[in-house]
Design a protein around this nucleic acid. Structure first.
Lengths: 352, 352
DNA sequence: CTGTTAGCGCATTCAC
DNA sequence: GTGAATGCGCTAACAG
C-alpha cells in the first residue's frame, strides 16, 4: 500500500467505498493522489477475498463453449441471463466445460478455478462428471433443463407434457406413420435408429422426456410404432445429417422433431428431395426459435429468455442469502403454422 | 485452515497443486480427510490473490449485454474467443458495459470490479466512458474493431477499403442512384438522413470507415451524391425501421447497407413493397453472416470467428508476458450473390 | 521429502 | 472523524 503518501491505509479504502466515513476534503485529496500515482483503485481480487463475493455468475453449458454459440436457443437463454445480470451489476462468466472424453482431473480443474459466486448449469446430461465438480465447490447452483440437484433450485418446462401435445396435434390431423428425430439421447456420439433400451437409458433428460411425451400420445391413441432416430449431436451439420438419414430410412407422413434446429434441417432436406411440406411431409418442431416463425414451422413454444431470467434471479437470490430451493416450471404452448396438415392418402415420402 | 487435522498448512496446498512435492501416502491421506470434511479444495479467490492470475478473459461489448445476443456477428466473435479460451483453459467473462446515459460512477464500477486477467473491447465508439475505466485497470487490453489504444494490441479489418470495393461493384454494374444505410454513426439514438457534419463527427469508427469507403468509390467515379441514412441502432427492429425509412424517402436503384443485418432488413422491406431484387433494387451488405448466404445476399465477407481467435490469442500472450503490441488486420472479400445486378432503365423504387 | 514463514490487497473491527 | 491491527485463503521460498 504505497498510499502512505499522506494518510494511512484504511482511509484509502474508505475513500472508495464509504464516502460518508471521511471528510470531503480528505477524500478528494486521496483520490487526487491516487490518480496522480496511477493507482487503479481497490484490487478486485483482494476485495473478493475479503468480502467473499465476486460479482460474477458462472454459466456452464454442455459440450464445448464454441459450439454453444451456434445454438440459437443458447443465445436466447444468455440474453435472459444477461438482462437480470446487468440489472444486478454482475458479470456473466462462461466456464469451459470439458468434453466428457477428457480425463477428468485435467480440465475439470479449470472449472473448479472459476471465480464466481454461483453456477447455472444448462442442459447437462445425467451423471456428467462436471456435476460433481460443481457440487464440490459448495456454491449456489441453479440447473436449467438440467438434472434436479438435491437442495438446489431448478428451472425448466414440462417437456413431456409439451411433447405429448405436439404428438396429439399430429394424431388429430390423421397422421399414423410418424417418426421422431432427436439430436442425441446420450453424449456418446452415436447416431441412427435408437433402440428401446437406448431410449430407456438416455442421459439427456430433455430429449428423453420429449420422446416419452411423443410416445404417451401415440400410446393413448393406440398407435403402436413410433421409431426414433438420433442425429448424434446438436450442431447444424449433425442435424442435417440426421434429417437426411431419417428421410432415407423411413417412409412417414410426418416427423416429430425434438428441436427446431432439427425441424429446420428436415425442412431443408425435404426441399432438397422435392417433398412438399406439409402435403408430402408434415414437420413439427420444438422451441419456437425466431427462425421457426420465418420458416412457417409448427412447433412448441418455450420461453427461453424467461428461462434465463428466472435462473439468474434464482441464483442471485440464493447468493444473497434468500433461503429455500425452488422448482420453476415455465409454460409452453403449441404454435400451429404451415408445416403441419392432414396427410395425403398415399405417402410419397418413400425410402430413397 | 482447519486442516490442522494431522499435517500443517502448506502441505494441503501441495496436495492439490504439486503432487510431486509430497509423498504419495501423505497426499492421499490429506485428500481423504478433505473429502470427509467436505473441504472444497483451494479457494480460487485466495489463489488469485496470491498468484495474480484469475483464469478469465473479460469481454466488453457496446451497449447492453442483452442486446449483444441478438447480433449474429457477436455470436461468431464469441465463438472464436471461446475456441481459444477453451484450449487455454480460461473462462470468458462478459462484463456489463453500462449505457452511456447512466451516470459514470454508478455502473462503471461493476466493470472495474470485474475479476479478469485482461480485457477485450469490441466495437466501442470513440470516447466512450468505458474506455477510461478499462485503461485505469492497467490490465492487458485488446480492442476489436475498436479505437486504437496507445500501447495495446488491436485486431480489425480494412473497413474503408472493403466498403470501397463493395461500392465499386455497384458502380461497375451501372448504378448511379445509390443510398447508404448505416446502423448508427454515434450512440445517441438519432436516426434518419445523416448530414455531412454528423458523418464527419461520427463516433462509431466502423460505420464511419465504411461510409468513407463508399464515398471514396463514388468520388473516384465522379458520381457526386451518396445520401446516408441512419437506422439509429443495431437491433432488428431498428434495422427494419431504418430500411423502411430509406425506401420511403429515397428513390434509388441500389443500397449500400453497412451491415448484413441492415441488408437483410432491406430485403424484407423490399419484398413487403413488391420490389424485385435485384431488378428493382440491388442490395449489398457487409459481414457475410450465415443468413446472408441463405438470402443470396451480395456482401463483404469478414472473418468474425477468426477475429475472436486472434483477439483472444493476442490477449493471452500479453497476459503471459509476451511483450509488444500488434495491429492485426484480417482480410476481407467481396462475395457476389444474387442481390446485385444491373439497374433497369427506369427506377421503380420511388418514394411511397 | 516435509514443515514453517511471509506476504498477495483488501475491508473491517476497535481504539483513539 | 481517523489510524492501527487483524485475517480472508492461498502459494512461493526457504529451512529443516
Amino acid at each position: 500500500m504505497a498510499e502512505a503518501v499522506g494518510v494511512s491505509h484504511a482511509a484509502v479504502s474508505y475513500a472508495y467505498n464509504r464516502p460518508d466515513k471521511l471528510s470531503q476534503q480528505q477524500r478528494s485529496r486521496i483520490l487526487a493522489v491516487a490518480a496522480e500515482l496511477g493507482y487503479p483503485g481497490p484490487n478486485p481480487t483482494g476485495r473478493s477475498l475479503r468480502t467473499g463475493k465476486v460479482g460474477a455468475l458462472g454459466l456452464i453449458l454442455t459440450d464445448s463453449l464454441p459450439y454453444a454459440f451456434e445454438d440459437p436457443g443458447v443465445a436466447l437463454l444468455m440474453r435472459g441471463i444477461a438482462e437480470v445480470g446487468e440489472l444486478a451489476q454482475v458479470a456473466l462468466t462462461l466456464l469451459p466445460a470439458p468434453l466428457e472424453a477428457v480425463p477428468a482431473a485435467a480440465s475439470l480443474d479449470a472449472l473448479l478455478r472459476g471465480v464466481v459466486d454461483g453456477f447455472m448449469v444448462y442442459a447437462m446430461p445425467d451423471r456428467h462428471p462436471v456435476l460433481d465438480s460443481v457440487l464440490r465447490r459448495r456454491l449456489p447452483v441453479v440447473t436449467i433443463d438440467g438434472p434436479a440437484l438435491e437442495g438446489h433450485s431448478r428451472v425448466g418446462i414440462d417437456d413431456r407434457g409439451a411433447a405429448r401435445e405436439a404428438a396429439r396435434h399430429l394424431l388429430a390431423l390423421g397422421h399414423r406413420d410418424v417418426a421422431v428425430l432427436v439430436s442425441r439421447l446420450s453424449p456418446d456420439g452415436r447416431s441412427g435408429p435408437a433402440s428401446h433400451s437406448r431410449i430407456a437409458h438416455a442421459r439427456d433428460r430433455v430429449m428423453k422426456a420429449r420422446v416419452k411425451g411423443y410416445r404417451d400420445a401415440f400410446a393413448e391413441a393406440g398407435v403402436g410404432v413410433l421409431p426414433v432416430v438420433e442425429a448424434g449431436g446438436f450442431s447444424a451439420a449433425q442435424s442435417r445429417a440426421g434429417a437426411e438419414m431419417l428421410l432415407d430410412t423411413r417412409s412417414v407422413t410426418a416427423v416429430l422433431a425434438a428441436t427446431d434446429v432439427l425441424a429446420l434441417a428436415l425442412l431443408d432436406a425435404a426441399a432438397g428431395r422435392g417433398l412438399r411440406v406439409p402435403e408430402d411431409l408434415a414437420v413439427i418442431g420444438f422451441d419456437d426459435l425466431p427462425a421457426a416463425a420465418v420458416a412457417g414451422l409448427t412447433t412448441v413454444r418455450q420461453p427461453m429468455t424467461q428461462k434465463g431470467q428466472e435462473a439468474a434471479r434464482l441464483l442471485l437470490n440464493t447468493i444473497n442469502g434468500t433461503p429455500g430451493t425452488h422448482l420453476v416450471t415455465l409454460p409452453t404452448e403449441l404454435v400451429v403454422r404451415g408445416s403441419t396438415g392432414e396427410p395425403t392418402t398415399g405417402s410419397t415420402a418413400s425410402p430413397h
